[in-house]
Design a protein around this nucleic acid. Sequence first.
DNA 1: CTATAATCTGAACACTGTAAAGATAAAATA
DNA 2: TATTTTATCTTTACAGTGTTCAGATTATAG
Lengths: 217, 217
Amino acid sequence: MNSVKINSRTRKPKRTAYHHGDLRQQLLTVAEQIILERGVDGFTLREAARRAGVSPAAPAHHFKDAKGLLTEVALLGFREFGAELEAADKAGGADPARRLRLQAIAYVNFALKHPARFQLMFRDDKHDDANEEFKSVAAHSYRVLEGAIRAASNVPPDGELTPKSYGLLLAAWSMVHGFSHLALGRGLRGPGQAPFTKDAMLNSLLPLMLEHLPTSK
Amino acid sequence: MNSVKINSRTRKPKRTAYHHGDLRQQLLTVAEQIILERGVDGFTLREAARRAGVSPAAPAHHFKDAKGLLTEVALLGFREFGAELEAADKAGGADPARRLRLQAIAYVNFALKHPARFQLMFRDDKHDDANEEFKSVAAHSYRVLEGAIRAASNVPPDGELTPKSYGLLLAAWSMVHGFSHLALGRGLRGPGQAPFTKDAMLNSLLPLMLEHLPTSK
DNA sequence: CTATAATCTGAACACTGTAAAGATAAAATA
DNA sequence: TATTTTATCTTTACAGTGTTCAGATTATAG
C-alpha cells in the first residue's frame, strides 16, 4: 500500500510525535481561520491550541501571549496589504490621480477580501505595543499612500508635507478607511434594509464614492 | 447633627437594603465608566455588578445578558449623537454645504469627546441584533445626514437618492467616520511619531481635511 | 393581611489566559 | 557515539469570566 510519510502534518491530525514540528506557523494559520469564523473577539488562545492539536500551554513557547500571536497575524496582514497598495500605486503609472484612485480601490478591496484580518490590523488593543517590527511594517503602508499624495501635491520626497497636502492625505485615507469599516459592519443598508453584497459595495458603491475622492493640489 | 437621608444612593455605597432601588440605571452608568477606563473590551459584567454593589447574577434581572446592557448604552449614545447632529444641521441654516460641514464637525467632535461610547456604538458584535429600538435610533442619525445630502443634491424628501447623491453621502460619511476611527486609534502620528492631541486633531487636522469635503451636486 | 411578582443572593458550571514544574526529544558538545 | 544542554510540549493549577438555577427577600397588588 501507499507508504504514508510519518508525521505528515497537512491539516490538524492527532499528532503522535511529542514535538509538533511546525507549531509556530500552524498557530498563525489557525488563528487566522478562527478570527475569520468567529470574529476578532471570538478568538481564544485555547481554541487555537486545540486546532493545532497541542495543549493550552504550548503556544507560550512561541508567542509571549495571545496578544503576541495576534500581533504577528496583523503584521503578516500589513505585509500583504502594503504590497497590494504598492502594486496598485505602480499600476497608476505617472498619473497621480490614477495612483491615488487605484490605491483607494486596493485598500477597500483588501478590507472586503480579508475582513477579519483587516479588522485585526486596525484594532490597536489587540496588538503588542512593544513590537517594533509591527510598527515598521504598518508604517510602510502609510508611506505608500504618502508617496501618491506627494506626487499629487508636488511635494518632494524629502520635504515635509504642506498643510494642504496633509489635508488631502487625511481626506483620502479617512474616506477609504471609513468606507471599509462601514462596509464590514451592519450599518450600510440598501433599499428595504437589505444589506449590500460585497460585490455591490466594491463595484457599485465604491465607484460612486470615489467620484468624490479629492485629487487636487 | 445633620440627619442623613437613609439609603441615599449617590455613588456606590455598601447597600444595606436587599433591593437596590435603581439598579438598572446604575448599571448603565457604571458600564459607561468602565468602557471609558478600560475600553470596550475591558468591560465585564461582573465588574459592573461589583461597582453597583450587587451580586454577579443581579444584572440578569434587568438585561438579558452583557450584550443587552451594552446595546442599551450604545442606544443612549446614539440618542445624544443624533441630537447633536441635528443641532449642527439646524445651525447650518439654509446653506447645504454649511449644514454638511457643521454635521461633519459635530460627528468628529462627538467621537473625540466620548471615545468609548463612540467605539461601542459602531461595534456591531457588541449589540443585540434583535433590539428594534436600537436600530431605529441608529437609523435616525443616518437620516439626519441624509437630510443634508438631499438639500445639497436637490433631492426631495420623498424620492429616492440618486446614485450621484448617494455617492456624495458615502463620501461624506466615510470621511468623518474614518477620521474618527483613525483619531481614536494609535495610527495618526505627527512629526517625530508624537501622537496628536485631541485639540490638534479637532482644530487643526479636521479643518485641513474638511477642505476636501465634497459638497457639489 | 395575604398572595403574587419583582428583585437580589449564593452556588455551580463551563469556559478563559497564563504560570510553574516536569516530561520528552532534538541539538550541541565532548 | 555518549552525554549534556536546550527547545518544545504536557500536566496541573489558579484566578477570572458569563450565565443558569434554586432559594431568600422585599415590594406591590388584591
